[in-house]
């Protein structure tokens, strides 16, 4: 861990903060790729059913199922990331990093700065393309699940340093 001993805490207004708006695009693009793959699978199945003799007869004209799947998946791709994005908030509290997220299962995680072992910054190709980073905060507990997506790449390192500065004098493992 870097030595950031008495660094003055960088002035960041405390309060609930949303993720970077581009994170919504990252999720939508990711989901869209999955939806596309699914539609392609259904299309392939339809083509196979039409081509192979003795396969069960399609109920409607060719492509009905594909279109239906594509429409439903498209709607989900539009709405689910929006819900997920709206549910996400993070907060740099006085002594803990707090993450609130989840649509179906709401969760509110608190990680004391004091317990932070190290912080990874990861960037998937999609995130790179949209100028985002993901912070993964690790404690000594393997079960701590503290991924903070949707941080502007420029801010990620600063945020990491802010958190590390608050861990105090840490010569942890």
């Amino acid at each position: 861990m870097t030595e950031v001993a008495a660094a003055a805490p960088v002035a960041v207004a405390d309060g609930l903060r949303p993720l970077h708006p581009n994170q919504l695009r990252v999720w939508r693009l990711g989901w869209a790729l999955a939806a596309l793959a699914l539609s392609a699978l259904v299309l392939a199945a339809e083509l196979a059913a039409a081509a192979v003799a003795g396969a069960p007869q399609l109920p409607g004209p060719m492509g009905t199922a594909t279109v239906a799947v594509a429409v439903v998946a498209g709607a989900l791709v539009w709405w689910l990331p929006r819900l997920g994005y709206d549910a996400w908030r993070y907060q740099l509290g006085p002594s803990t990093l707090e993450l609130r997220r989840g649509v179906v299962i709401r969760s509110h995680t608190a990680i004391p700065y004091f317990r932070v072992q190290h912080i990874d910054i990861t960037r998937s190709p999609l995130e790179r393309a949209l100028g985002l980073s993901q912070l993964v905060v690790r404690t000594a507990a393997a079960t701590t699940d503290a991924r903070l997506p949707g941080i502007a790449a420029a801010d990620a390192e600063r945020l990491r340093d802010v958190i590390l500065a608050r861990t105090g004098r840490g010569d942890a493992v």
Binding site: P94, S95, P112, Y113, F114, R115, V116, Q117, T139, A140, R166, T167, G168, R169, G170, D171, A172, V173
Partner: peptide
């Protein structure tokens, strides 16, 4: 949990356990 403000000098010698 301690750390941060409460145990200023002593904080974090061995954050593992």
């Amino acid at each position: 949990v301690g750390g941060a403000g409460s145990v200023s000098g002593a904080a974090g010698d061995d954050a593992v356990s």
